[in-house]
Design a protein around this nucleic acid. Sequence first.
DNA 1: GCTATAATCGAACGGCGATTTAATTCTATC
DNA 2: GATAGAATTAAATCGCCGTTCGATTATAGC
Lengths: 228, 228
Amino acid sequence: MARKPADQSVNREAILLAAADVLRQNGYEATTMKDIAARVGLTAASLYHHFKSKDFLLLSVLEIGLEHAIARLEPLLHATDLPCSERLRRMIATHIIEVADNTAVGAAMVFEIRSLMNAKLSPRNGLTEADYAEFIERREAFFRRRDVFEGLFKQIIRQGINSGEFRPVDAGIVTKAMMGAQNWVGVWYKPTGRLSGPQVAEIMADTFIHSLLNATPQPAPRQETSHI
Amino acid sequence: MARKPADQSVNREAILLAAADVLRQNGYEATTMKDIAARVGLTAASLYHHFKSKDFLLLSVLEIGLEHAIARLEPLLHATDLPCSERLRRMIATHIIEVADNTAVGAAMVFEIRSLMNAKLSPRNGLTEADYAEFIERREAFFRRRDVFEGLFKQIIRQGINSGEFRPVDAGIVTKAMMGAQNWVGVWYKPTGRLSGPQVAEIMADTFIHSLLNATPQPAPRQETSHI
DNA sequence: GCTATAATCGAACGGCGATTTAATTCTATC
DNA sequence: GATAGAATTAAATCGCCGTTCGATTATAGC
């Protein structure tokens, strides 16, 4: 009957951050409400004051992560004073730095989407009809936004191809390759590793830009051709 | 007390294939022994005749998938009559075709490694001390083999750089990018999609090869530089 | 201070899933 | 055709997890 004497009021955002972190380590199914609650000094029951269910909590985590990522990338896409290659380079680098910096949200984006799709909820159980409808709606909105996110990269690639700056490639597949490489960073990157986040970002961005440029670029590339 | 009149004797391999398939759809934690058993017309209890535990089952799935992949790639690495670019191209394409063809094993490789690491087993519970030791040992062997797999790609990149065929890049990071892009195929690829597995494989392989080649390649690239 | 509301808690409920057990059926071999 | 071992099963165990509920405490506005 007693209650924790600690400071009250853990806000929604703190819970979401903690959840993202636990989720990255354990995955949705293996993560218990107790785990998440413990990270913010609460009990599992308390979480239900902030979120309707575990599914809604996962959904919220993914939503803020995705919106954050889109918000950072969109301005870069529209920096029309820069050539496509430079815009794309910055987009890739920006996102990778973000993923390396906050692997929680990044990795969650990779791994937990399947859990979201398989979310086994039905109007029965506790959930209200309205709650069920809300979940379905928000989940579909999320997938639409994910397509938007991917579209940011696809757009700039197409633009570069049309302007002749990039060689003609299948923009869809190249985009998928980028997504995979970028997402994967959240899985293997460790802050204690050989390279920093920005360093990794630069190398990867360079790799993809190089794969898109024509064989005869305008500015001479600074590079030795041969060395033992 | 009765028993299924169906054909008896479901062999180990059939179970592993079924498990890989269910695993890809649901993930390790969300997959029940009952799910796997149902795919091969058995009950959950029957699986324990073939595997010591769910953890061992997962481990076995990953082991065969990885060995299969390595076996297909190793010959290509050692085809020294071909230039590095061609060898790498074939390695990438081969693996992507494999992943697209058998998304089960491919996706499992991506997703379930975390479950493997977090496998919450201890000598207590049912597990024997010996069983526990065996699991730990096999798991570490698996991770070593995974490094070998990744090393196949890293090696050929380094070789190409040393021979001057590839431009100097950070082989480690480029390899990670390849791993991410390749693994990701198992997540988004659908046989009913716009492109076939081999088509996807060719485009992706081309993308990465292009990112490695020097600006002045020996054979003239066949490509229009500009088009409206 | 009083009251409404927000935030939290302990405890209990209900279900499900991994695993065990003991029994049953198949299959091959002698 | 008896027997041993392999393969399978139903049923029970045991623990955990999501969720609910009623009660308790903090906080803010009056």
